[in-house]
Nucleic acid binder design. Structure first.
Length: 712
RNA sequence: GGGCUCAUAGUCUAGCGGCUAUGACGCCACCUCGACAAGGUGGAGGUCCCCGGUUCGAAUCCGGGUGGGCCCACCA
């Protein structure tokens, strides 16, 4: 926060401060944040929407669309903050509940009283008409008549219009050209005169007569007082109503008239729907937001803003005839305020003086070009072609209607193609109560603080925890889960590496059933995870891998394979190699599957051990694990081992005994053949700590798959 | 007011026609098992928001409510 006002200095100076803030403070901070978050980018290449490169492309876009006849400039109402004295866009507004009064004031028709309710009596001098609903019987008699405006004593027509709500106030409404959105629609629809009662600095204009120069609030008060005195104000009803205020200063916004630039696209709604349908939406339902937005479009795209900082329009106007003079496309970017127009005289009238366009483009006019801006960072045209159109736009759902939509529009208008194939729409982190985080509510959690306190991996682990597109409430305690996962995978890897020191990557002559079991289960996880990632369902991958790692791999597999790894003399060398094989491949795959979600810990483990055995320098460029085959028979034997182990654990736990307590005898019944059981016997004895293990085959028709008896 | 979406243990979440409803945090009991007590084993805790309907069978599908979220519109 610089706490400076653009009004207090020349534009040059203000813009310079903006540049310096962006380049020296914000950009390094953002880049640092992205690196810490673990974003994998080429940080030598970046754009911001205000640097020369982006300005050039943005201005070129403006010129090209103008040449295609897709842009025009005309008078239009614009939202205006009288305090900041600037035009503002809709995104800069917010709703605020304010106390106000419905004032019943007296208009006169042929000497008779006509009562109209208004919250804004100060706009009376700008009154241009009075409306009632065409079906409202009460007011039919006024059709075609004139109403005399109180205090100001001029007459305005009384007309029917369906936008007048019979239920509101007295059911009859006054229209002041720049009162609100509806007032402006009326102005357009009935071709009413344009009257401005308020100037750009929020003061009453000379239209207001004796109230000229007063602030809006003072004028409102004075007019109410005067009407009371003259018995023109019948009553005041206090109401609460929502008004649009400028989010920075909380000032009620006004509407002003100004010349604005538009991109003409309202006639392309059908095409827009087709363009949207050609995108692959993840998740699918997000497309409706796009469709709904397109169907509801009512205006062309206004791209000009009356602000100081932004991409300038590459435009001058002839001082005499207002002819548009465009910049030379080869000399972009230009700032018309500083630079000279490319012509000596106006081609239309010959005038030699030009007026620079002072407005700047709305930020979305430039942000909508991000695919082109990014692609053109690389000079090689062949590579540019590879990059644009792009494969994916990742973004959140709140800006589908502007960032996503506008980008599609620009790409189509310029090149006739969609900017990307897929769009992945994520949800938002919310506060612990499911509310949107916002500075004004004071419920914002800074990711950097959480990364400092926990880690980027934990934060990412948490963020990957909800379904794509769903919002996710943030609670700090949820980051503990990620921390625990990191510790667990560190410890499990430490154990694995210890036993893999002498492993030469060879396949064992005979694969023990539990080793085949973990590999087969692993293959299932690889399959589902790969499918999930391909449709951007990262939360499914996260959950599958988490469960597989923690329960199948750590709780069961490691405990069972341990004995063979520690005691090659007792269990045989090849039994140990079989364990090493299962251990190596399952852990490596877990690390690879988890790498996109927890890039730091997985890379650390890869560097510590796997790098010298595998070809790739980093886990993040290593080949994605391939599924081999799922072995149902081996899985059945493995399941029986796991059953035997967990059933003995439960028995010990129920007796409050240590898990290392030895069992005198363990009887297991299952559906596998005795010969198959013999392959599993060794692992069961060691993992269950049973002195003797007996197997009995269950009848195929038996309801239970497994049974057991335990003697302590 | 409109669109989309969500509702599952104290909290967060998975499942989206058929197992005893998943996992995590928290809670309780027990356990120093040669990776890990930042752990292990087990346990308690749920009218799967409400009301109807379809179905042999609904947390899951359909209709109607209620509540949350985001976006849009309104705001005389």
């Amino acid at each position: 926060m610089k706490k400076i006002s653009a009004k207090a200095m020349p534009r040059d100076e203000f813009v310079k401060i903006c540049y310096e803030t962006v380049n020296k403070e914000l950009k390094p901070q953002y880049v640092n944040d992205m690196k810490r978050l673990g974003l994998s980018c080429d940080f030598n290449l970046f754009y911001d929407t205000i640097n020369e490169h982006s300005q050039r492309i943005s201005q070129r876009s403006f010129i090209e669309l103008y040449e295609k006849g897709l842009e025009y400039r005309k008078d239009a109402p614009t939202m205006w903050c009288p305090k900041c004295e600037t035009g503002i866009s809709q995104v800069e507004c917010e709703d605020k509940e304010l106390d106000s009064f419905f004032n019943d004031i007296v208009f006169k028709v042929d000497g008779e009283e006509l009562i109209i309710a208004t919250t804004r009596p100060e706009l009376l001098p700008a009154c241009v008409a009075v409306f009632y609903h065409p079906d409202d019987a009460r007011y039919q008699k006024y059709k075609g008549k004139m109403a005399k405006v109180p205090l100001f004593d001029f007459e305005v027509p009384i007309m029917p219009d369906p936008r007048a709500d019979p239920e509101k106030g007295t059911g009859i409404v006054m229209c002041c050209t720049f009162g609100d959105q509806t007032d402006m629609e009326w102005q357009k629809a009935h071709d009413l005169p344009i009257k401005l009662a308020i100037s750009t600095d929020g003061k009453m204009t000379k239209l207001a007569g004796k109230y000229e120069g007063m602030s809006i609030q003072t004028a409102r008060k004075m007019i109410i007082e005067d009407m009371k005195d003259q018995r023109l104000l019948l009553s005041q009803e206090p109401i609460k109503h929502a008004v649009n205020v400028h989010e920075r200063c909380g000032t009620e916004i006004e509407f002003m008239k100004a010349k604005q630039w538009f991109i003409s696209y309202l006639d392309k709604k059908e095409d827009m729907l087709k363009w949207g349908a050609e995108l692959n939406w993840y998740p699918k339902h997000m497309k409706s937001r796009y469709d709904h937005w397109v169907k509801g479009l009512a205006w062309d795209w206004m791209i000009s803003r009356q602000r100081f900082f932004g991409v300038p329009f590459p435009v001058w106007y002839c001082k005499e005839c207002d002819e548009v003079i465009l910049a030379d496309k080869k000399k972009l970017p230009v700032d018309p305020i500083k630079d000279k127009a490319p012509l000596a005289k106006c081609p239309k009238c010959g005038c030699t003086e030009f007026v620079p366009e002072k407005d700047v483009m709305d930020t979305w006019a430039t942000s909508s070009l991000t695919p082109q801006i990014a692609a053109e960072l690389i000079p090689d045209k062949a590579i540019q072609k590879k990059i644009y159109p792009m494969s994916l736009r990742p973004q959140a759902h709140d800006i589908i209607t502007f960032w996503l939509f506008n980008t599609v529009v620009k790409s189509r208008l310029h090149n006739g193609i969609n900017p990307w194939a897929d769009v992945m729409i994520a949800g938002h982190a919310q506060d612990p109560h499911g509310k949107k985080m916002s500075k004004s509510k004071g419920n914002v959690v800074e990711p950097q603080v959480m990364i400092d306190k926990y880690s980027a991996d934990s934060l990412r682990f948490w963020a990957a925890g909800s379904k794509l597109g769903d919002d996710l409430p943030f609670q700090e305690k949820d980051l503990v889960t990620g921390e625990k996962f990191i510790t667990k995978i560190w410890n499990a890897s430490k154990f694995a590496f210890m036993h893999l020191e002498d492993y030469d990557l060879k396949k064992p002559k005979h694969l023990e059933p539990i080793d085949g079991w973990i590999i087969s289960k692993l293959n299932k996880i690889i399959k589902t995870s790969t499918e999930a990632f391909n449709s951007y369902e990262y939360s499914k991958t996260k959950q599958d891998v988490e469960n597989f790692f923690w329960h199948d791999f750590c709780d069961n597999y490691l405990e069972i394979v341990k004995d063979r790894l520690y005691n090659p003399d007792l269990r045989g060398k090849d039994a140990r190699i079989s364990g090493q094989y299962g251990l190596y491949h399952s852990l490596l795959s877990i690390i690879k599957l988890m790498a996109p979600i927890m890039p730091y810990i997985t890379e650390e483990l890869y560097q510590l051990f796997f790098k010298e055995k595998e070809k790739a320098e980093s886990v993040h460029i290593a080949s994605w694990p391939k599924e081999v085959k799922i072995d149902q028979e081996t899985e059945k034997i493995g399941d029986l081992i796991v059953y035997a182990v967990s059933t003995s654990r439960r028995a010990k736990s129920e007796k409050n005994l240590s898990l290392k307590t030895e069992l005198k005898a363990l009887v297991i019944r299952g559906k596998i053949e005795l010969a198959e059981f013999e392959l599993a016997r060794g692992d069961i004895i060691s993992a269950a700590r049973a002195l003797s293990v007996e197997y009995q085959k269950l009848d195929e028709k038996s309801e239970a798959d497994f049974e057991h008896e335990i003697v302590f």
